[in-house]
Each structure stands twice: as structure tokens, then as C-alpha cells.
Design a protein around this nucleic acid. Structure first.
Lengths: 129, 129
DNA sequence: ATTAGTAGTTACCTAAAGGTTAGCGAGTAA
DNA sequence: TTACTCGCTAACCTTTAGGTAACTACTAAT
């Protein structure tokens, strides 16, 4: 009587698998890459000036920092504030939206920490004896 | 009398800022890029064959899937199982270590979901009136 | 006047990631 | 036999990311 004797090898799961993949893909599209999260982290710790960021975020060049800041501004994570005072100072500030990344940042940093430890131990095991 | 009138603009925070940056950087190094997490997600949902993965992970090519699987194996996230039976079937399986990524995956998917909604609303606002 | 710092931009170039096409060797189905 | 699937691989090419160096415009100190 049955059209198909589907014992549920996927099928009913593939739907939410696609959704999960799509949402992770969306996230990676917005905050993927080497630098965006790093810049946001550095800013959350009080680094708001161009040169500060350049020094804090190890290995980033002025050109890349400049273009990443523009993208982050365009996507609503930060704003550029130019003081009208004298001398003119330029500050970048996190917008509230960047706080939504808290969970992502803490998950990644926790995992990164344990991963580094694991790699270190793997290395030790290889070189013991 | 004071050498520097440092009122603690950063300084005591820059230390753990560097640590945070380093750990996130480590994580991105291991699981960054467009595909690794996606493949792991698809595998966690029961897609263990090459062609299944190719179909599930939207937009990935055979060449890239093949090389990503090799890297994932090298880094201890998965293993390749070649059945000795007849016909020979090849299956990729998640290793326990890939489960440590649970938190990262769920943080990213949650954020990705809300981000997509936000973008959609921003777009609507722009086009209303 | 020179030097140095801030906040970039521009032009040029390299490297890495990734896409496209083709095909191979095996099995399987008609 | 033909045709199709699976699990790739190789060759080739394009795109993107990112590095380097030079330069601008301004300020500030020496």
C-alpha cells in the first residue's frame, strides 16, 4: 500500500539541514574573512582610532583596515565619528548591532582556545619518546 | 613627579584583548573559509557520501569538496571509511572532535538567522512609501 | 626646516581560493 | 552495448584577498 518504504534516511531532516546551512552561510557572508570579527573585538576593548586598531590587530595593513572599516560601516556594525574640534580626530565606534555578535565571538574564542591546546598536546605526543 | 599620567586608557585590557584576538584567530584559521563548517553541518545531518555532500552543500564543486575533505581529515574532524564489501562504498564520518564545534555552529546559525531577518526588514523600510 | 605621527588613498603586484571543464576507472542498469 | 552514477583528479583560468610602497594633507614637536 505504501508508495515508498522510506525509513527516513534523511528526507525529513534535509529541510532543516538546508536552513541551518543557509543561516551559517549568511553569517559567514557578513562576518567571514580574516579581519571583521577581529576589528570588532579590538573596538569592543576600547580601540577606536585607526592607528590603534592597526597596532592591535596583528598583521593588518592600512589598506585592508581602511576597506574593512568601510564595509563594517556600510553593514551597520560601526560608525565613523569625525570630531569638529581642533585638531580633527577620527574615531570609530561600535553600534549596538555589533553587540549581537557577542555569542559568536565567545563561542569562537572558547573553541579557539581549546583547539590551540589540543594542537599543542598533539605536537607533544608526536615528539615524546 | 609622575613619569606618565596614565589613567588607564587600555593597558590593563590590551593583554586579554590580545589573547581574545589570538584565540579567535586560531579558530578562524582552523575552521574559517566558506566550506569547512558547512561540510561538518551536512555530515552531522547524515550526509556521509561524496555525492550527497556535493548536493547538500550548495555551490561546492567536486574539486573543492575533495580538497576540503582531505583537510578536514588531516585536522582530525573526520575520517574516510572505505568499505571492503562489494561494491566498495566510501563514507566520510565525523570524529568526536567535530562535536566540539557545536557551540560555534549554533552561535553562527542563530546570528545568521537574525541577521537575514534584519537585512530583510532594512530592505522593506527602504522600499516603503 | 626637519622629523614624526595621524589617517588614510592609490597603484601595483602576488598568492590563495575557488570555479569550469574534461575525463578516468570502477560499478550498475537497460 | 550504451548510458549513467560514484568518487574523484588534472589542467586551466578567474576572482578575491591581501601585501608593499609611495604619497597626500594635516598637526606637532624639535
Amino acid at each position: 500500500m505504501k508508495k515508498k518504504e522510506v525509513i527516513n534516511t534523511k528526507g525529513e531532516f534535509s529541510e532543516d539541514c538546508h536552513k541551518l546551512l543557509a543561516s551559517v552561510s549568511d553569517a559567514l557572508y557578513a562576518i567571514g574573512g580574516k579581519w571583521k570579527l577581529m576589528i570588532i573585538i579590538a573596538m569592543a576593548r576600547g580601540n577606536n582610532r585607526f592607528t590603534e586598531l592597526q597596532r592591535m590587530v596583528n598583521g593588518i595593513s592600512a589598506r585592508v583596515l581602511s576597506s574593512e572599516l568601510k564595509e563594517l560601516e556600510l553593514n551597520g556594525f560601526i560608525i565613523k565619528k569625525v570630531s569638529v574640534g581642533y585638531p580633527v580626530t577620527i574615531e570609530y565606534q561600535l553600534l549596538p548591532y555589533s553587540e549581537t555578535l557577542q555569542g559568536v565571538v565567545s563561542a569562537l574564542s572558547q573553541w579557539g582556545t581549546q583547539h590551540r591546546d589540543k594542537i599543542k598536546n598533539d605536537y607533544k605526543k608526536d615528539n615524546s619518546l
